[in-house]
């Protein structure tokens, strides 16, 4: 498929699902009512529902999905590892732990900005650790095992911090942090996370040439003029910013960054840089679709979207593990 056609098709798909996300909700608004609400403003119920509830949710679905898809694609490219993904290698879990540690300790009162501050720190620590490990021993197994250990540790620490919180409700929020959700976010969350994620996209995009060259290994890449330290910085910082900010407002949403690059890679030249944009768009489409689905399947007691992505992603991951033993992607 021609890159332009592919990107266009995925962008249209994401747009359609973005609109679907705006259209779905417990308040049954008609199409014209929704459109008017979205653009007219004012104190009408439809306007408040569209602008304060559904629009932030759809925007977060779009941008977080884009971030996760792109982060998965860049990590796979950089580590030359088809199983790399922010969730699997423990970056999301560490980001969640960071957010939880800063927020629930009350260090910053109950200010929202405590969430990304903590999440970015956690994500950064995770990516640095994994890169150090991957640099010493580049095998898939090492990375996945390190990710498993990191995820479990971060999950346990998250549970610990939440249990120690004096707020009796806090310990029930573990679900959100382990299996994220986009429910009841506000536009404040969008402003908090979107600039950070956008900065992450930019840094990741700047590493495009490097990940192409890295298809041939680090030595060949360096001989092609790729500055490895700079590349590492771009990807560490880009993934930490993007995944950290995404996790801060939506909890851990796993497998989007794994599933999407794999589904889309066969439609590209398989050149890692050519996968970044389509994987981002595909990630946005997948997360929006999952978020629409959770609202349709259980409208009242709404399922966390992280549950759904895990339900799709985990079997996919297993299938990949089996396939990875025989094939190169």
């Amino acid at each position: 498929m021609k890159p332009l056609a592919l990107n266009l098709a995925l962008a249209l798909l994401a747009l359609a699902l973005f609109l679907a996300s705006l259209a779905v909700g417990p308040a049954e608004l008609g199409v014209s009512e929704s459109v008017r609400g979205l653009f007219a403003g004012g104190g009408e119920a439809a306007a408040i529902i569209m602008r304060e509830i559904r629009l932030p949710r759809a925007l977060l679905g779009l941008s977080i999905g884009f971030t996760l898809g792109m982060a998965g694609a860049v990590l796979q490219g950089f580590l030359r590892n088809p199983l790399a993904e922010p969730g699997i290698i423990g970056v999301s879990a560490m980001a969640a732990f960071g957010a939880v540690a800063v927020f629930y300790s009350g260090l910053a009162g109950s200010a929202l900005y405590a969430l990304p501050a903590g999440a970015l720190t956690g994500a950064l620590a995770a990516v640095l650790l994994l890169m150090a490990l991957a640099a010493r021993n580049g095998s898939t197994l090492t990375l996945i095992l390190a990710g498993v250990a990191l995820s479990s540790l971060a999950g346990a620490l998250t549970a610990l911090v939440l249990n120690l919180s004096p707020n009796p409700f806090a310990s029930y929020e573990i679900i959100f942090w382990l299996l994220g959700s986009l429910k009841d976010r506000s536009i404040a969350h969008v402003w908090l996370a979107l600039p950070l994620m956008a900065a992450g996209w930019l840094l990741i995009a700047l590493s495009a040439r490097a990940i192409d060259a890295l298809s041939l290994g680090e030595e060949a890449a360096a001989s092609l003029g790729i500055h490895m330290a700079r590349t590492r910085f771009l990807i560490v910082a880009g993934v930490a910013l993007g995944v950290g900010a995404a996790t801060a407002v939506a909890g851990t949403i796993g497998f989007v960054g794994l599933v999407v690059p794999h589904l889309i890679r066969p439609l590209t030249t398989r050149m890692p840089s050519r996968l970044l944009l389509p994987a981002g768009l595909g990630g946005a489409a997948l997360l929006l679709a999952a978020d629409v689905a959770v609202r349709l399947v259980l409208p009242a007691g709404e399922l966390n979207v992280g549950v759904l992505t895990a339900l799709i992603g985990a079997p996919f991951f297993l299938w990949l593990v089996v396939r990875a033993r025989r094939e190169v992607f």
């Binding site: 298809s215 041939l216 290994g217 030249t269 890692p272």
Partner: peptide, 14 residues
């Protein structure tokens, strides 16, 4: 230009 001894091809590139 440098051609390393290790022959690495990361993806199914044409």
């Amino acid at each position: 230009a440098y051609l390393p001894q290790s022959r690495i091809i990361g993806w199914r590139l044409m």
